[in-house]
């Protein structure tokens, strides 16, 4: 725990990098999604030959956008939550509550990665109609997001625990980091 002043920034920079990569991938997916719908309309009206792959592929893209985007939301703390306790609890107890929140997310991330992997391998033998690729591909972004959520929230748990047992200045630093 004492080594954190040197190690922490590297870990944090690594996680920041991961979240930028995740965001960029889902950004590219968003652009492809919009363009493919432009192609769909063009095909139907101009070519009179509707591309049949767009609908199924769009579902894959939106899954990727959602799960990668949502895991970045965990890192940046942008998800909606109720913040009643922080108004009534003293700071120290609130820090324990925060650790509990991050632990919950950690567990959810692990479960998401594990069971979506199970889903993916189960669905691998079945093809998505009209695309001809394994249905299991649908769950790859979900597995990835589970792993990311696990990494992001373990870092927060670690920081929270360190802050709980450290002198005051460290606490102030990590508290300001958790700002939205």
């Amino acid at each position: 725990m004492n080594s954190s002043p040197i190690k922490e920034p590297i870990v944090k920079r690594f996680l920041d990098l991961l979240s930028v990569i995740a965001m960029s991938i889902s950004g590219v997916c968003m652009v492809i999604l919009v363009l493919s719908f432009g192609w769909l309309v063009f095909g139907r009206y101009v070519l009179n030959d509707t591309p049949t792959w767009v609908e199924q592929m769009a579902m894959l893209l939106v899954t990727a956008i959602t799960f990668l985007g949502a895991s970045v939301g965990i890192h940046q703390r942008t998800h909606l939550s109720v913040e009643m306790l922080s108004l009534v609890l003293p700071e120290k107890s609130m820090r324990c509550v925060d650790i509990f929140i991050d632990l919950t997310l950690l567990v959810f991330g692990v479960a998401m990665a594990y069971f979506s992997h199970e889903l993916a391998s189960f669905a691998w033998s079945r093809n998505i109609p009209l695309l001809g690729i394994p249905d299991g591909i649908r769950y790859i972004p979900v597995v990835t997001a589970g792993i990311l959520i696990f990494l992001f929230s373990s870092f927060r748990v670690f920081n929270g625990v360190v802050a709980l047992f450290s002198p005051q200045e460290a606490v102030n630093k990590s508290a300001s980091e958790g700002d939205r």
Binding site: S26, G27, I65, T66, F67, L68, G69, G73, L80
Partner: peptide
């Protein structure tokens, strides 16, 4: 690109809630 990234984040938040 800013618009893309922001919409991706919002989409992630809304759609994970929906899911």
């Amino acid at each position: 690109w800013i618009a893309v990234i922001r919409s991706v984040k919002t989409t992630g938040m809304v759609m994970i809630l929906v899911g």
